[in-house]
């Protein structure tokens, strides 16, 4: 899987690249507008991470260029400008997702995972991980032939963990992911613990709770 990171902030681009390379993605970096245009014209990628404010030009123009080239890449906008107009404009031109800075790498990774799956398998999409099968369309989870009844939060949690397989996800990232728009409206992350506990219990009933590991109370990891 090839990913192009169009981001002029070196520190951030490096972090993303390091995190994703670990997950068996192949990452390339573009720090300027020209570099980005050059790369999208000459190479194909599975997913492009696009910063909107670049030296040399706007990321929105790159997005338009991609459309002109009839490229099928999934595009995730990562922007410091969390403005609704930019978001709407970006999504209208053809971006698949929009992530405002600052974000957690685990959140980004989960979004990349989801964008790539959507692009590659359309909507009839099943994830098989270990003995667990997740039907993304009907949002159901089964182990073997047994259905696993999960709440929406537990389902989201499971997908997030799997989207960051073998990575430690911080409790903060999980809390923000699970609360979505309400992420700013929370003081304690106790509810994360409760949801993880419940999910673990349901998995334990099917003998597959061994994959979720707790890291000293800082985070959780799906190990497989």
């Amino acid at each position: 899987m090839k990913i192009l990171i169009i981001e002029d902030e070196k520190g951030l681009a490096q972090s993303i690249s390091l995190y994703l390379t670990d997950e068996n993605y192949k990452c390339e970096l573009a720090a300027t507008f020209e570099e980005a245009i050059h790369k999208i014209k000459n190479y194909d990628y599975d997913c492009i991470l696009l910063d909107l404010m670049l030296p040399g030009g706007s990321g929105l123009i790159i997005l338009e260029e991609l459309k002109k080239l009839n490229k099928q890449e999934g595009v995730i906008i990562i922007s410091a400008k969390n403005s609704l107009e930019d978001k709407i404009k970006g999504l209208q031109i053809g971006a698949d997702d929009y992530l405002a800075k600052p974000f957690h790498l685990s959140e980004l990774s989960a979004r990349i995972y989801s964008v790539i799956r959507r692009k590659q398998f359309g909507n009839t999409n099943k994830i098989n991980i270990n003995e667990i099968e997740i039907d993304l369309l009907s949002k159901t989870v089964s182990v073997g032939n047994k259905d696993l009844v999960l709440t929406k939060k537990e389902y989201d949690l499971l997908l997030f963990l799997i989207g960051n397989k073998n990575k430690v996800i911080s409790k903060n990232a999980l809390a923000e992911h699970l609360s979505g728009d309400m992420a700013d409206m929370m003081d304690n992350h106790g509810f994360v613990y409760a949801h993880v506990k419940n999910l673990k219990k349901k998995l334990a009933d099917n003998n597959c709770d061994k994959y979720i590991k707790t890291m000293y109370g800082v985070g959780y990891k799906w190990e497989s």
Partner: peptide, 14 residues
């Protein structure tokens, strides 16, 4: 401030 914050947070994640 958003960008340095993003760098900071990503380094924590790493």
């Amino acid at each position: 401030l958003q960008t340095p914050l993003a760098v900071f947070q990503s380094k924590l994640d790493l």
